Simulated scan of single mutants.
Amino acid sequence: MRKITLLLIFCFSLNGNAQQTDIKKTITTFFDGFHAKDTVKIKSVCHDKMILQSIVEGVKSNRLAEEKTSEFYKSFAQFPPDLKFEEKIFGYTIQIDGAMAHAWTPYEFYINGKLSHSGVNAFTLFKENDTWKIIYIIDTRRK
């Protein structure tokens, strides 16, 4: 009986690790598309009803900003070709409950090699047809 219990725990652990790997892959694909300014790649891992918000932290006050997903995608076409930006992710804390997952990713954001701001991303994902899709992104931004 003890061997069966240990085997079940091991199997659940493997499944959890595989799901975490899939979630990281989804977020990595998002950022690969983001850095390449490739909206087709970004859309491949985002749900049609994705919500985007930012908490902008200022010296005097904080504000909540919301961006329409369609405007987010359109913005890539407006970036100058020589503009380079990179979001460096410093780790993942992932929680999973059935078809929902949450990933917490501290980051620094660079424009043309210069630090612009830092904070944390919070991704909420939905498992649809065995594929993890990003349904919500909120981030903090501080100088």
Rank of each mutant, 00 (worst) to 15 (best):
D22H: 12
I4G: 01
A101M: 08
N17C: 10
M1V: 09
K37E: 00
S54Q: 08
T29Q: 09
T140Q: 01
G91W: 00
N15R: 12
N15L: 15
D22W: 07
K127M: 13
I138C: 05
A36T: 03
K49L: 01
I23E: 00
T93Y: 09
D38A: 08
K3V: 11
P80A: 12
H117V: 09
I138N: 07
Q53C: 07
P80L: 02
D139N: 05
F30I: 05
I55Q: 08
A65E: 15
A99N: 14
A18S: 14
T39Y: 02
T140N: 08
F126Y: 06
V59K: 15
I4K: 12
S70Q: 15
I94H: 07
L14Q: 10
T21P: 01
G113M: 02
F30P: 03
L7M: 10
H35R: 07
V59P: 11
P106E: 00
K74R: 15
C46P: 03
I27P: 08
F10H: 06
S13F: 11
K49A: 11
E87V: 00
K133G: 06
C11T: 11
K41D: 06
A65W: 09
Y73S: 08
L52S: 02
T105Q: 04
K24L: 04
C11A: 14
K43V: 00
P81Q: 01
T140F: 09
F85A: 03
D82P: 01
T131H: 14
Q78T: 12
H35Y: 08
D48W: 00
F12S: 11
F76Y: 10
D22F: 11
K68V: 03
D97V: 13
E87P: 00
K25C: 05
K84M: 11
V120C: 08
R141E: 04
K60W: 07
T21R: 13
T124D: 03
F10T: 11
F90K: 05
C11E: 10
S44M: 06
D22V: 05
Q78K: 15
S116M: 05
T29P: 07
R142F: 14
D97P: 01
D139L: 01
G16S: 15
K43I: 04
I96Y: 04
F30A: 00
I135S: 07
L64F: 14
T140M: 04
H35L: 00
W104G: 01
M100N: 07
P106Y: 10
R2D: 13
A99Y: 14
L7N: 13
S54L: 10
D82Q: 12
K37L: 00
F109R: 08
S54K: 15
F123K: 02
A77P: 03
A18K: 10
N121S: 02
F90I: 04
K114H: 13
L64A: 00
K25D: 14
L125Y: 00
Y110R: 05
A103S: 07
K60D: 13
H35P: 07
T29A: 11
Y136C: 08
K49E: 05
T105R: 03
M100E: 03
I94L: 03
Q19G: 02
K114Q: 13
I96L: 10
L115M: 09
D38S: 06
N15G: 10
L6E: 14
F10D: 05
I27R: 07
